[in-house]
Nucleic acid binder design. Structure first.
Lengths: 217, 217
DNA sequence: GGTTCCCTCCGCCTGCCGGGGGAGGAGGCA
DNA sequence: TGCCTCCTCCCCCGGCAGGCGGAGGGAACC
């Protein structure tokens, strides 16, 4: 029932440190090491560990690419991504690959052990230091109620909704069952109220303001 | 330096359990309780705790509304949301409010204590049991690469990106530093490859496919 | 009754968009 | 070398979009 772990990092010193921390934890066994992404993939395929500790920044093949490669195969290991800097690019890119954990190297050793155990159990863990940023990426949009939208009349909101479906004035007129001339008037009004130049910018505004969201008809 | 905590849950039994767990942790002090959302807001405003443990499902005012209310005020407490079921609705709704933690009641007590400490420190924690779903919500869209986008050349992708900012051909030309005629050609190509009629639908496609996302420049 | 807002509709006109077709240079590949 | 893709640029032309001003009917409010 031990958790078999492979460590991938290009710095020997850090590998040693990670190994020390991991092996000091009961039930955790380090079964391999790799100093770059290509080796990480090879060692992982050979050893089939439960958990792969993967540094993002590595030569030849970076951790993101290695994770993507491994996760595309059947029965991949759980991957805990390690990084020195918790930049938004690193964070989002890592989460996108579908890793089970994301940890900063500045995290206390017990977090690392916890992340390994959690990952091995099929769950996930994100470093507390960056978790708020993950949450913020959910909260960011709906917390911005664009004041301009409030001034739109119901009819104008209808028209804006239809605009975001890529319809022409004529199509909107058909859809709404009124004349195209009326739609033109509504569209002009919407553009004026939103302070945008054309229907294209109105659609961008609608998406960016959260008035419409991708994937919801 | 103790962490002052308020507990809000409509079940007295659960409040007692949470209090027991929290007070058993060194440096954590429970300074108030509430049995519904309205009381939670009132107690929180009176006690000004560092951390508020907030159940989602509560009478009068649910935890989500209470969190939204409190977080809209200046100097809000850190909020750790508690829930019995880790449904996607609960999860996303909670993260949207901007809480610092999201925990299932089925989590081990030490997770609760850890979440309180992490929240008090200004960081965030998401229950390992639902973290993978959070990660998946990042991976969900980019893992569906609409085949049409693959056929676009780098230049055409640039143009599409600029299109989604609501720019005219002339503005795109200026932005890209090439002639408008060239942009017209690229746009025509993009429309053809995406199978859409005009730039408006191309922008809608870009948003709906996840090629661009609201709120990310 | 007057005012205001919303919804409906009309015509005119300028300008950009998009379709069509063509063309040349740069770079990769066999 | 030939072949291909990509990027660059051009012309013509029809059509829709958007700005302009105007107008009438209905509902709500004072």
């Amino acid at each position: 029932m031990t958790i078999r772990v492979v460590i991938a990092d290009d710095h020997a010193m850090i590998r040693a440190g990670l190994r020390l921390v991991a092996e000091n934890a009961p039930g955790v066994d380090v079964v391999g090491e790799a100093a770059d992404g290509v080796a990480a993939v090879a060692v992982t395929r050979r050893e089939r560990p439960d958990v792969l500790l993967l540094d993002i920044a590595m030569p030849r093949l970076d951790g993101l690419a290695a994770a993507t490669t491994l996760l595309a195969n059947p029965a991949p290991p759980r991957i805990v991504m390690l990084t020195t800097f918790g930049s938004d690019e690193n964070l989002h890119a890592a989460l996108r690959t579908g890793v089970s954990g994301f940890l900063l190297k500045s995290s206390p050793p017990e977090h690392l052990v916890e992340a390994v155990r959690v990952a091995a159990a099929g769950d996930g863990m994100i470093d507390p230091a960056v978790t708020l940023r993950v949450i913020a990426s959910f909260a960011a949009q709906p917390l911005s109620p664009p004041p301009e939208l409030d001034t739109l009349t119901p009819r104008e909101l209808d028209v804006l909704r239809l605009l975001t479906r890529g319809l022409s004035n004529r199509e909107i007129a058909t859809e709404a069952g009124i004349s195209e001339a009326t739609i033109r008037g509504h569209v002009a009004q919407v553009l004026r109220k939103l302070g945008v130049r054309d229907r294209l910018q109105a659609v961008v505004f609608a998406y960016e303001s959260g008035f419409v969201r991708p994937g919801r008809p």
